[in-house]
Nucleic acid binder design. Structure first.
Lengths: 345, 345
DNA sequence: GCCGCTTTTGGGAGCGCTCCCATTACGCTG
DNA sequence: CAGCGTAATGGGAGCGCTCCCAAAAGCGGC
């Protein structure tokens, strides 16, 4: 019975596990990787050796030999500070983390700020240092997705970039969320329902506007383009849009704002204009972020299942990496939103 | 002149770069790793070859041969949802990311939720899959720091765990921030200044209380233990503490609350009790989080330089990894806070 | 008891790099 | 111009694993 030779101070290697279990290296490897072509007796012997020695595979060696990394990158465009200020980021991370918890996959966090970092990232990815990429908040004109496509690097994005999105994506139902929000305002007796939109180049913002339009028509209200004020997802933008709306259509009695942050700006303007919320003007936001809960009055808002989105993105990516045939249909998930009614409506 | 042999489809290897430059593998390696023992001519030749071939070192091979990983882990205890809800997390990540931007270091994000994940983490670290660890929001009784110490794994924590902290740490000046907050209240003419504390097992919360006490004494006010209400960093806890305070000392005219979230709870109770803010009771929070800006009235709060803290933590860790002698003094940074005065005081 | 098949096993050949030692080239000194 | 110290270089060994081929073992059927 050959005792496993434990080299001074080093961590046990596969070789040592194999020796301890009285099998060859190949067999030990098979057991550890869950191959079925191993007899039960052998499997148990190896598993015992692993336990006794406290063996943990060396990731680098695996990566080198197996030509994979067991790591995925979460790529976050840093300029999107909006993204950070909101719990969005944390929730996505938590979701992704949860999905990866039972996996050997590591999560690499990559912030891309300036152009230099962008290039470094491209290099990174080209060098195949990760098995796949999660891209959040991609802009429609971002070249990164195409680059990944060319490299054959598995990739999942959050939020389709346009109607015919080709990349696997996970999104919340912006259209339906907006529709429900406006329907809710109508059900509260509002007849002059305006909207403040996000940047319409962002497809999600466009979808929210579509939802608004659909609900307005469905309610039998007269669509009025002067009730639509484009903004940019910022608090100041929301304020400015609200001012415009009040100037154009002072008789409005409800506003669906495409983000909570913008709603905060709008709310401020309403206060200054002496309009009470919700008595004079009912307000509904989007995101159900922290600010919604702490606004005065607390803001009715459309909640997105962000953590779940993160989880789904991760799962989709894992599937992709596991290698579904490339011409298989690209899954595009749309998760339902939920209207959280508070005192502003 | 031997043309570099480019293997079909593969990425160029060091060997190929060396061939292309007409030097040996060792020399090429030296150039790439910035060793000084290379002649200028050779260096230039190799650099040219690298550029032409678009060579990027294989991380796995490096890790395997060099017995390091060029990666650090940011370990986040997930149960600390409080931590996530606030911009704290994002800001730390951004700071760390910024510090790592010019480095070859990768940032691994590790969420530890339940106990199983904790064990997995320990295994991870034991297996030396990272070169160092950033620990945020460690509890005083967490065994992880000790484990790391034993393993000789470089580590930096955010927030000292107790007065005699032995690990390198980066913290904001909780004491001074609290002191300044209370001093500010006093300067606004408040004489009955109470405080709502965080969980006092958290050293930072204790320091804030110390700061409060110091300021009260310095102002020549009579210290009164009934003006001190312990809470737990939650909104509900803050509300409850405020209720207690009002019951015990109805004549209070100022409150320093050790977190914005608790302040939100306290503010709610004050409203219900018919106390105006700031006319009847002035309020100061801590963290300068999103809720502070959106409270009604906007909350005066103590801002911590969180992003900077992340940056410093990362730098400290890199130093540690670069290998300062182990008995060198462990740096413990304390960064200044800033009082952001708004309408609540 | 032999043959041919399948299942199981062992271990060689690398993966691409760093480390380090031996070798060569160079530059002075006497 | 020999001799010696130093700077520069080449390349073997090996990191720990996966892949895969060939060998061994097992199992029926005739």
């Amino acid at each position: 019975m050959a005792a496993a030779r434990v080299r001074s101070g080093g961590r046990p290697t596969l070789e040592e596990v194999a020796a301890r279990a009285g099998v060859g290296r190949g067999t030990a490897s098979r057991v550890i990787n869950g191959s079925p072509r191993v007899s039960d007796a052998t499997r148990q012997a190896v598993e015992a050796a692993v336990a006794e020695l406290g063996y943990v595979p060396n990731r680098a060696a695996r990566a080198l030999a197996g030509n994979r990394t067991d790591a995925i990158a979460l790529v976050v465009p840093e300029p999107e500070t909006r993204f950070f200020a909101e719990p969005y980021f944390s929730a996505i991370v938590r979701g992704v983390g949860a999905a990866l918890a039972d996996t050997e996959m590591q999560l690499l966090l990559t912030l891309v700020g300036n152009d230099r970092e962008r290039r470094r990232l491209a290099q990174y990815l080209t060098a195949h240092r990760v098995d796949g990429v999660l891209l959040v908040a991609v802009h429609a004109d971002d070249p990164l997705p195409e680059l990944l496509e060319q490299l054959g690097m598995p990739c999942v994005i959050s939020g389709a970039r346009h109607p015919g999105e080709t990349l696997p994506s996970v999104d919340s139902d912006n259209y339906e969320g907006a529709r429900a929000a406006v329907e809710h305002l109508v059900s509260r007796g509002r007849r002059q329902v305006a909207t403040i939109t996000g940047r319409l180049e962002v497809y999600g913002a466009q979808r929210r506007l579509d939802g608004y339009r659909a609900a307005v028509s469905a309610a039998g209200l007269t669509p009025d383009e002067r009730l639509i004020a484009p903004a940019d997802f910022t608090e100041e933008g929301g304020a400015k849009a609200m001012r415009d709306l009040l100037a154009r259509r002072p008789e409005l009695d409800g506003v669906f704002v495409a983000s909570d942050v913008m709603a905060a700006g709008a709310r401020q303007v309403l206060r200054e204009a002496g309009r009470r919320v919700p008595e004079d003007v009912a307000l509904v936001g989007f995101d159900d972020s922290v600010v919604a809960r702490h606004m005065h009055p607390p803001l009715t808002s459309v909640r997105q299942p962000i953590e779940e989105m993160g989880r789904r993105m991760a799962r989709l990516l894992l599937d992709e990496i596991a290698g579904r045939s490339p011409d298989e249909e690209r899954p595009s998930l749309v998760l339902p939103t939920e209207l959280v009614v508070r005192d502003s409506s």
